[in-house]
Amino acid sequence: GSGGKEGKSWRRFQSYKGEAALPKEAENLRIYVDRKAQTVILPVHGFAVPFHINTIKNVSKNDEGDFTFLRINFQTPGQLAGKKEDTPFEDPDATFVRSVTYRSPEGHRFDTISKQITDLKKEVNKREQQKKEMAD
């Protein structure tokens, strides 16, 4: 089709300008979806680590015994997506976080988080699509 060969270029994005912008909720050491910043904040051994929604591919959830596991998959180069690889990367040779998995006894909360991330992803994709249509 047309436009396929244009080669999308990587567009800069950033979650927060500095530490002061980190929302208060990060203190709870729980996964927090900051819709305004289009960012998911993950607690990693005491750090509050933001991941912009553009870096997230999808989420999956499964229950095992008393616990629920939430896995967040990220965009990385060289994934067998089944489709043409057209996701641009700033630095394809860097080391990427490909996925992280969390465990919680509160399944319903992970349900909510999973839905929030999926909805945010949809919302951003939709906006992106609209922008593209406007540009045409």
């Binding site: 616990f67 394809p92 976080v97």
Partner: peptide, 18 residues
């Protein structure tokens, strides 16, 4: 399991290393 006031625990991380 309730002892840590419901912190979310990371149990696995995967890296893509070229």
């Amino acid at each position: 399991k309730k002892s840590r006031s419901g912190m979310d625990e990371m149990v696995e991380i995967r890296f893509h290393v070229p």
